[in-house]
Each structure stands twice: as C-alpha cells, then as structure tokens.
Write a protein that binds this DNA or RNA. Structure first.
Lengths: 202, 202
DNA sequence: CGATTTATTTATCGATCACTACATAATTCA
DNA sequence: TGAATTATGTAGTGATCGATAAATAAATCG
C-alpha cells in the first residue's frame, strides 16, 4: 500500500480540511497559494504535486464539502414520511450548520464565488451547478411526494422548491453578517409557516 | 463654473455608471484597474485623479448604486397604508430590479464581496453595513406599524424583518443563477403568504 | 503673450499573483 | 548496496496586480 518513493509528511485529508477553511472564509479569489501553503503547512511544490493547481484543489475541496455537509442536509430525507417534515429538517439543519462555531458561517457554495463573470469562470460555473443541485433535490422530493398523494396535484412544486431554496440561500448571507442560530431558526419557522398556502393551488 | 486647467474629456457620471457595471458583474476583487479603465475609456492616471484609488471608486459606486436602486425599494414606502402592502412592494420591486436586462442580475451589495474576511476587509465591511441598513429599514417600518396598531403588539417584528430580508438576499443568488422574473415573483408571493402567521404571536 | 492650473499619455514602479526548475532527501526495489 | 521513485525545500519564473513619475496637452488668468 505504501508507495515507492519518499512518503508524504502530511495527511492529505487534514490538508484538504485546512484548505477548505481558507476558501470558505476568504472565497476563491481572495485566497492565495501563499494563504493555502501557510494553512496547509507545506511549500508550493508539495501542494501542486498533491492536488494539481489552485482550481483543481478547490474542486476537490468543494467535493469534500458537499459530501460532508450536503450529506447532512440531503442524506436521509427518506426517513421523513411527509415532505413538510423533510423540508423543515433541511431548513433547521441549515440554521444549525451555518452557525457552527468551528467552521465559517454560511455556505461555501453560496459565498465563495457568486460573481456572474470573473477571471475564474470555471469556478463560478461549478458552484452555480452545485447550487442548482439543491433546487433539484427539493424538486425531486416534492415530485415523489406529489406522486404519492402527499402534495395535491394542483400545487406548483417548482415554485415550492424555488421558494425554500431562496430562503436557504438568504440564510447564508444572514449567517455571514452575524445572524445567530436562533434568528435563523426563526426564519426557518417563518418559511415553514408558508407550507399550507404553497400546497394549495398556485 | 468651468475649472481653471484642462477640462475632462469624460463625463464623471457616465464613467461611474460604467465602473458600476463592471463591479456589479465581476465583484470587487475580480475587477482590475485594467478592466475599469477599459470600461471607463480612460487611462489609469485619469481614474486615480478623478476617483482616488480602487477602494474609493468602489465606495462612490455603491453610494450611487444605493441612491439609484435603494431609492426604488425604500423611497416611498409611506405611501402604503399597511406594512403588508409596503413589504409586498419591496419584494415585487426586488423581483423586477434583479432581473432587468440592462443591468447585471441580482444585488451588487449582496454579490460583490460576501467574504467573511478577504484582502479588502473595508469593502466587505462597507457592504455588510449596507445590508444591515436593509434589515433596519424593515424593522423601522414594522415598528411604526406596530405603534399604529397595524401589527399586533405580540408580533415579533425583528423576526419579521429578518425573514423578509433573508428572502430578498436569497433572490440575489437566484437571479444570478438565472431565475426568471416570474420565478422571483412567485417566490415573493410565497413569502407574502406567510404574513398572517407572522403577525400572530411568535 | 507668459504663467498657472489641470488632464492626459506614456512608460513604468515594486509587490504579489499562480506556478515551477532544480537540487536534495527519503523511501522501495533488485 | 546501487538504481529508481517520489517528496521536499530553495529560489526563482513571467504575468498581472494596484498605483505613479514625468512629460505633454489644453484650458484660464493676468
């Protein structure tokens, strides 16, 4: 299992975790290779040998981010019988995750590079595609529920998914601006109060 | 009125408008002086003489942005008798403004530099303070309405303001990701449907 | 007119950017 | 052990960053 040449002096997962924290706090563009090598405790050649260039490292970071935090949000929604409970779980978990003390506040996918066009279009596009997955998750959830009769046929499930996604996106900005966990929970509660009117004809 | 020396060859307001479009599209950091001088059709020394450095130019741009677009949102809310109508006006105007074809989509104050900490902390802070003004506007609106008896004393107006602000923030991300005007209007409608439950005890 | 003032153009500045050539160190394989 | 392989540290690369010095151009003032 151990390779042939000189072994690494750092743990790859730990280094990725350290890189994630920097990207999450400063965003993609404001994070320099120097910031990264400092946080990851290695010199540039080691970083490039292990992760490719800055963009490849970032892509690996967001893959890791998604499997770590996305899973907390979307991983076990099928255990909820009703889509309303699943949606509440998503929003409440969001309020919790976005205000954790041991990570930067807000969602990295929303905050790291929201520019329409920058000098790093690949990164902007990758993050946008990840965000669209979020809406897709909700639409799938609601489509299944509608098929199962838990949401009336007349309900506009696209609007529902767009609405809850919008609230979740907004919570990222709020969290970054210093909103407390309780404040985000209150926002989530308010959003959930809309449910009855959403599932009636729109 | 005309000064003493050689007159400017550009219109200051036009140049600011051109700078705004670049900052709005690419964000603060990704916008280079070179991007700006190209868009503003001038050489660096002219830019620096007329506007100071990049940060001062950006600050002037967001002041202009705020007086142009902020006014459309918050300028004449007193013409609405009921705070619910004022809130609907804000969200509907937001849906309209964020999807205009002759400007970048979404709000520059939300999208230009949402990093928690970057190499331009002044800019991050200035934008965050502007965003907090938004919540403040809503809180003032609701406080007056509560005093006038249009919102029950038991209602939690801080939660209300946080909630509608969150929806508006989220609409910026949605607009940037390609949401249509109709989709944002549907989101605004959904958010307004929450009103009755918000003004009952929370 | 000449003196003064301000703006524009040209041609940069030092700093930092992402990234790498090169020599050396540490491991495995034969 | 020596050859091969991989990682690390030193010391840079050219490009671009934000910002500017110096010369020139265009206006007003006396």
């Amino acid at each position: 299992m151990a390779g042939r040449g000189r072994p690494r002096t750092f743990d790859r997962d730990t280094a990725l975790e350290q890189a994630m924290e920097v990207f999450w706090t400063k965003g993609y563009e404001s994070t320099s290779i120097s910031d990264l090598t400092t946080a990851m405790n290695m010199k540039p050649p080691s970083l490039y040998a292990a992760f490719g260039d800055k963009e490849a490292l970032f892509e690996e970071v967001i893959r890791r981010y998604n499997s770590q935090y996305g899973a907390r949000l979307w991983g076990d929604l099928e255990r909820f019988e009703h889509p309303k409970d699943a949606t509440r779980h998503v929003l409440m978990t969001t309020a919790h995750l976005y205000t954790q003390d041991d990570t930067p506040h807000g969602c990295m996918v929303v905050l790291a590079a929201p520019q329409a066009d920058s000098n790093h279009a690949n990164v902007n596009r990758a993050l946008r595609d990840l965000r669209r997955l979020t809406v897709g998750n909700l639409k799938n959830l609601y489509a299944r529920a509608q098929h199962d009769g838990l949401i009336p046929p007349a309900a506009n499930i696209d609007n529902m998914a767009n609405y809850y996604t919008t609230v979740q996106y907004g919570m990222s900005i709020q969290a970054r601006d210093g909103a407390t966990r309780d404040e985000l929970i209150a926002v989530a509660d308010a959003a959930m109060a809309t449910w009855p009117s959403l599932i009636s004809t729109t």
